[in-house]
Protein backbone atom coordinates (compact mmCIF):
# COMPACT_ATOMS: atom_id res chain seq x y z
CA UNK A 1 0.00 0.00 0.00
CA UNK A 2 2.79 2.42 0.98
CA UNK A 3 4.59 1.54 -2.22
CA UNK A 4 1.46 2.24 -4.24
CA UNK A 5 0.98 5.65 -2.59
CA UNK A 6 4.66 6.41 -3.19
CA UNK A 7 4.30 5.41 -6.85
CA UNK A 8 1.13 7.48 -7.21
CA UNK A 9 2.80 10.48 -5.56
CA UNK A 10 5.76 10.25 -7.92
CA UNK A 11 3.47 10.08 -10.96
CA UNK A 12 1.48 13.11 -9.76
CA UNK A 13 4.66 15.12 -9.17
CA UNK A 14 5.97 14.07 -12.60
CA UNK A 15 2.69 15.12 -14.22
CA UNK A 16 2.86 18.60 -12.69
CA UNK A 17 6.56 18.91 -13.53
CA UNK A 18 5.85 18.07 -17.17
CA UNK A 19 2.78 20.31 -17.34
CA UNK A 20 4.89 23.13 -15.88
CA UNK A 21 7.64 22.49 -18.42
CA UNK A 22 5.09 22.64 -21.28
CA UNK A 23 3.79 26.01 -20.02
CA UNK A 24 7.35 27.34 -19.73
CA UNK A 25 8.04 26.25 -23.31
CA UNK A 26 4.90 28.00 -24.55
CA UNK A 27 5.71 31.14 -22.53
CA UNK A 28 9.28 31.27 -23.89
CA UNK A 29 8.02 30.76 -27.45
CA UNK A 30 5.32 33.43 -26.98
CA UNK A 31 7.95 35.98 -25.93
CA UNK A 32 9.41 35.77 -29.44
CA UNK A 33 6.09 36.72 -31.08
CA UNK A 34 7.17 40.36 -30.89
CA UNK A 35 10.07 39.49 -33.21
CA UNK A 36 7.91 37.62 -35.68
CA UNK A 37 8.85 39.91 -38.60
CA UNK A 38 12.56 39.12 -38.14
CA UNK A 39 11.70 35.42 -38.10
CA UNK A 40 9.20 35.49 -40.97
CA UNK A 41 11.16 33.11 -43.20
CA UNK A 42 11.26 30.49 -40.41
CA UNK A 43 7.52 30.87 -39.83
CA UNK A 44 6.68 30.76 -43.56
CA UNK A 45 8.80 27.61 -43.98
CA UNK A 46 6.88 25.90 -41.21
CA UNK A 47 3.53 27.10 -42.59
CA UNK A 48 4.57 25.47 -45.87
CA UNK A 49 5.66 22.27 -44.13
CA UNK A 50 2.77 21.97 -41.66
CA UNK A 51 0.05 23.50 -43.78
CA UNK A 52 0.59 23.38 -47.53
CA UNK A 53 2.27 19.95 -47.58
CA UNK A 54 -0.60 18.46 -45.54
CA UNK A 55 -3.25 19.52 -48.08
CA UNK A 56 -3.29 16.26 -50.13
CA UNK A 57 -3.72 14.16 -46.96
CA UNK A 58 -6.42 16.48 -45.62
CA UNK A 59 -8.30 16.37 -48.96
CA UNK A 60 -8.16 12.55 -48.95
CA UNK A 61 -9.37 12.32 -45.35
CA UNK A 62 -12.00 15.05 -45.89
CA UNK A 63 -13.56 13.39 -48.95
CA UNK A 64 -13.85 9.99 -47.30
CA UNK A 65 -15.02 11.38 -43.95
CA UNK A 66 -17.77 13.25 -45.82
CA UNK A 67 -18.64 10.17 -47.85
CA UNK A 68 -18.91 7.96 -44.75
CA UNK A 69 -20.94 10.65 -42.92
CA UNK A 70 -23.33 10.76 -45.86
CA UNK A 71 -23.81 6.97 -46.03
CA UNK A 72 -24.31 6.59 -42.28
CA UNK A 73 -26.55 9.63 -41.89
CA UNK A 74 -28.73 8.36 -44.76
CA UNK A 75 -28.95 4.99 -43.00
CA UNK A 76 -30.09 6.66 -39.76
CA UNK A 77 -32.58 9.04 -41.43
CA UNK A 78 -34.19 6.41 -43.66
CA UNK A 79 -37.76 5.80 -42.61
CA UNK A 80 -37.81 8.54 -39.96
CA UNK A 81 -36.86 11.83 -41.58
CA UNK A 82 -36.89 12.91 -45.23
CA UNK A 83 -33.56 12.36 -47.02
CA UNK A 84 -33.96 15.89 -48.33
CA UNK A 85 -32.31 16.92 -45.04
CA UNK A 86 -29.24 14.72 -45.64
CA UNK A 87 -27.15 17.68 -46.80
CA UNK A 88 -27.96 19.67 -43.67
CA UNK A 89 -27.28 16.79 -41.29
CA UNK A 90 -23.96 15.80 -42.82
CA UNK A 91 -22.69 19.35 -43.32
CA UNK A 92 -23.38 20.36 -39.71
CA UNK A 93 -21.61 17.20 -38.48
CA UNK A 94 -18.67 17.97 -40.75
CA UNK A 95 -18.42 21.65 -39.74
CA UNK A 96 -18.60 21.19 -35.99
CA UNK A 97 -16.95 17.82 -35.44
CA UNK A 98 -15.65 15.70 -38.30
CA UNK A 99 -13.74 18.44 -40.14
CA UNK A 100 -11.76 19.81 -37.18
CA UNK A 101 -11.27 16.54 -35.27
CA UNK A 102 -10.30 14.30 -38.17
CA UNK A 103 -8.04 16.99 -39.63
CA UNK A 104 -6.35 17.44 -36.24
CA UNK A 105 -5.91 13.70 -35.73
CA UNK A 106 -4.27 13.13 -39.12
CA UNK A 107 -2.13 16.22 -38.56
CA UNK A 108 -1.10 14.81 -35.15
CA UNK A 109 0.15 11.75 -37.04
CA UNK A 110 1.79 13.62 -39.88
CA UNK A 111 3.01 16.82 -38.24
CA UNK A 112 3.10 16.26 -34.46
CA UNK A 113 5.10 13.06 -34.81
CA UNK A 114 7.38 14.59 -37.44
CA UNK A 115 8.10 17.65 -35.24
CA UNK A 116 8.99 15.34 -32.33
CA UNK A 117 11.17 13.15 -34.57
CA UNK A 118 12.96 16.11 -36.16
CA UNK A 119 13.65 18.00 -32.92
CA UNK A 120 14.36 14.71 -31.09
CA UNK A 121 16.96 13.71 -33.67
CA UNK A 122 18.51 17.16 -33.40
CA UNK A 123 18.62 16.73 -29.61
CA UNK A 124 20.34 13.33 -29.59
CA UNK A 125 22.83 14.31 -32.32
CA UNK A 126 23.87 17.49 -30.44
CA UNK A 127 22.36 19.78 -33.11
CA UNK A 128 20.34 21.58 -30.42
CA UNK A 129 23.57 22.12 -28.45
CA UNK A 130 25.16 23.34 -31.68
CA UNK A 131 22.38 25.92 -32.14
CA UNK A 132 22.89 27.13 -28.56
CA UNK A 133 26.66 27.28 -28.98
CA UNK A 134 26.07 29.49 -32.04
CA UNK A 135 24.09 31.85 -29.76
CA UNK A 136 20.79 30.85 -31.39
CA UNK A 137 17.89 30.07 -29.06
CA UNK A 138 16.34 26.74 -30.16
CA UNK A 139 12.98 27.90 -28.83
CA UNK A 140 12.98 30.88 -31.17
CA UNK A 141 14.52 29.00 -34.08
CA UNK A 142 12.63 25.69 -33.82
CA UNK A 143 9.66 25.89 -31.44
CA UNK A 144 8.10 29.32 -32.07
CA UNK A 145 7.65 28.90 -35.87
CA UNK A 146 6.21 25.39 -35.45
CA UNK A 147 3.81 26.32 -32.66
CA UNK A 148 2.61 29.43 -34.47
CA UNK A 149 2.13 27.51 -37.72
CA UNK A 150 0.28 24.78 -35.81
CA UNK A 151 -2.17 27.31 -34.37
CA UNK A 152 -2.90 29.02 -37.68
CA UNK A 153 -2.52 26.35 -40.36
CA UNK A 154 -4.80 23.69 -38.88
CA UNK A 155 -7.89 25.99 -39.08
CA UNK A 156 -7.03 26.65 -42.74
CA UNK A 157 -6.69 22.90 -43.36
CA UNK A 158 -10.01 22.43 -41.57
CA UNK A 159 -11.72 24.86 -43.99
CA UNK A 160 -10.39 22.71 -46.86
CA UNK A 161 -11.52 19.52 -45.08
CA UNK A 162 -14.99 21.03 -44.49
CA UNK A 163 -15.32 21.97 -48.15
CA UNK A 164 -14.19 18.64 -49.62
CA UNK A 165 -16.08 16.77 -46.89
CA UNK A 166 -19.39 18.30 -48.00
CA UNK A 167 -18.48 17.58 -51.63
CA UNK A 168 -17.68 13.95 -50.74
CA UNK A 169 -20.97 13.66 -48.90
CA UNK A 170 -22.86 15.04 -51.91
CA UNK A 171 -21.14 12.67 -54.39
CA UNK A 172 -22.15 9.66 -52.28
CA UNK A 173 -25.68 11.03 -51.81
CA UNK A 174 -25.99 11.46 -55.60
CA UNK A 175 -24.51 8.05 -56.52
CA UNK A 176 -26.24 5.98 -53.79
CA UNK A 177 -29.53 7.80 -53.36
CA UNK A 178 -29.81 9.84 -56.57
CA UNK A 179 -30.28 13.01 -54.50
CA UNK A 180 -30.20 16.00 -56.90
CA UNK A 181 -27.68 18.77 -56.13
CA UNK A 182 -30.34 21.48 -55.62
CA UNK A 183 -31.97 19.41 -52.82
CA UNK A 184 -28.68 18.41 -51.15
CA UNK A 185 -27.06 21.86 -51.30
CA UNK A 186 -30.41 23.56 -50.70
CA UNK A 187 -30.66 21.90 -47.28
CA UNK A 188 -26.97 22.65 -46.60
CA UNK A 189 -27.71 26.32 -47.31
CA UNK A 190 -30.94 26.36 -45.31
CA UNK A 191 -29.30 25.05 -42.14
CA UNK A 192 -25.91 26.72 -42.70
CA UNK A 193 -24.74 28.74 -39.71
CA UNK A 194 -21.49 30.66 -39.67
CA UNK A 195 -21.36 29.98 -35.93
CA UNK A 196 -21.09 26.25 -36.61
CA UNK A 197 -18.17 26.82 -38.96
CA UNK A 198 -16.50 29.25 -36.54
CA UNK A 199 -16.85 26.89 -33.58
CA UNK A 200 -15.20 24.16 -35.67
CA UNK A 201 -12.38 26.56 -36.55
CA UNK A 202 -11.92 27.59 -32.90
CA UNK A 203 -11.54 23.90 -32.06
CA UNK A 204 -9.06 23.48 -34.92
CA UNK A 205 -7.03 26.47 -33.64
CA UNK A 206 -6.54 24.80 -30.25
CA UNK A 207 -6.02 21.32 -31.72
CA UNK A 208 -3.28 22.63 -34.02
CA UNK A 209 -1.53 24.51 -31.23
CA UNK A 210 -1.71 21.49 -28.93
CA UNK A 211 -0.23 19.18 -31.59
CA UNK A 212 2.70 21.49 -32.32
CA UNK A 213 3.38 22.25 -28.63
CA UNK A 214 3.42 18.55 -27.72
CA UNK A 215 5.64 17.74 -30.73
CA UNK A 216 8.15 20.42 -29.67
CA UNK A 217 8.05 19.49 -25.97
CA UNK A 218 8.55 15.78 -26.60
CA UNK A 219 11.28 16.53 -29.17
CA UNK A 220 13.27 18.78 -26.81
CA UNK A 221 13.09 16.11 -24.09
CA UNK A 222 14.19 13.19 -26.24
CA UNK A 223 17.03 11.05 -24.90
CA UNK A 224 18.59 7.75 -25.86
CA UNK A 225 19.59 7.76 -29.52
CA UNK A 226 17.56 6.24 -32.35
CA UNK A 227 15.42 4.20 -29.95
CA UNK A 228 14.64 7.36 -27.99
CA UNK A 229 13.60 9.18 -31.17
CA UNK A 230 11.27 6.31 -32.08
CA UNK A 231 9.68 6.40 -28.64
CA UNK A 232 9.39 10.20 -28.77
CA UNK A 233 7.56 9.98 -32.10
CA UNK A 234 5.02 7.52 -30.69
CA UNK A 235 4.67 9.55 -27.49
CA UNK A 236 4.03 12.77 -29.40
CA UNK A 237 1.32 11.13 -31.51
CA UNK A 238 -0.40 9.40 -28.58
CA UNK A 239 -0.27 12.51 -26.34
CA UNK A 240 -1.45 14.86 -29.11
CA UNK A 241 -4.33 12.56 -30.07
CA UNK A 242 -5.44 12.16 -26.46
CA UNK A 243 -5.24 15.92 -25.84
CA UNK A 244 -7.14 16.66 -29.07
CA UNK A 245 -10.01 14.47 -27.90
CA UNK A 246 -9.89 15.97 -24.38
CA UNK A 247 -9.84 19.50 -25.85
CA UNK A 248 -12.70 18.50 -28.14
CA UNK A 249 -14.85 17.59 -25.18
CA UNK A 250 -13.97 20.72 -23.18
CA UNK A 251 -14.47 23.05 -26.16
CA UNK A 252 -17.73 21.34 -27.14
CA UNK A 253 -19.06 21.94 -23.63
CA UNK A 254 -17.96 25.57 -23.75
CA UNK A 255 -19.07 26.34 -27.32
CA UNK A 256 -22.43 24.56 -27.62
Amino acid sequence: MVEFIEYLGKRIILFFQQAGAVFILVWKAARYLSKIWNNRSLVLNQMLEIGVRSIPLVIFVGIFAGAVASVQTAYQLKGYISLNYLGAATSVAIFIELGPVLTALVIAGRVGASIAAEIGTMKVTEQIDALESLAIDPIRYLAMPRILSGFFMIPILTIIADFVGVLGAYVVAYINLGLPPEIFFGSVKEFFSILNVMSGLIKAFFFGGTTAIIGCYVGFNTTGGAEGVGKATIRAFVLSSALILLNDYILSVLLF
Partner: peptide
Amino acid sequence: FHLRKQFGFLFQSAALFDSMTVVENIAL
Protein backbone atom coordinates in the same frame (compact mmCIF):
# COMPACT_ATOMS: atom_id res chain seq x y z
CA PHE B 1 24.31 34.67 -26.24
CA HIS B 2 26.63 37.66 -26.56
CA LEU B 3 29.32 35.72 -24.68
CA ARG B 4 28.73 32.61 -26.79
CA LYS B 5 29.50 34.59 -29.94
CA GLN B 6 33.09 34.65 -28.69
CA PHE B 7 33.18 30.84 -28.81
CA GLY B 8 33.45 28.34 -31.61
CA PHE B 9 32.51 24.77 -30.69
CA LEU B 10 33.48 21.75 -32.78
CA PHE B 11 31.28 18.87 -31.63
CA GLN B 12 32.45 15.27 -31.55
CA SER B 13 29.90 14.33 -34.22
CA ALA B 14 30.31 17.74 -35.95
CA ALA B 15 26.56 18.28 -35.21
CA LEU B 16 25.85 19.71 -38.66
CA PHE B 17 22.22 20.60 -39.32
CA ASP B 18 21.21 17.82 -41.67
CA SER B 19 18.34 19.72 -43.26
CA MET B 20 20.79 22.38 -44.48
CA THR B 21 23.53 22.43 -47.11
CA VAL B 22 27.14 23.02 -46.15
CA VAL B 23 26.92 26.71 -47.03
CA GLU B 24 23.70 27.13 -45.02
CA ASN B 25 25.29 25.39 -42.03
CA ILE B 26 28.35 27.61 -42.04
CA ALA B 27 26.46 30.80 -42.86
CA LEU B 28 23.79 30.36 -40.17
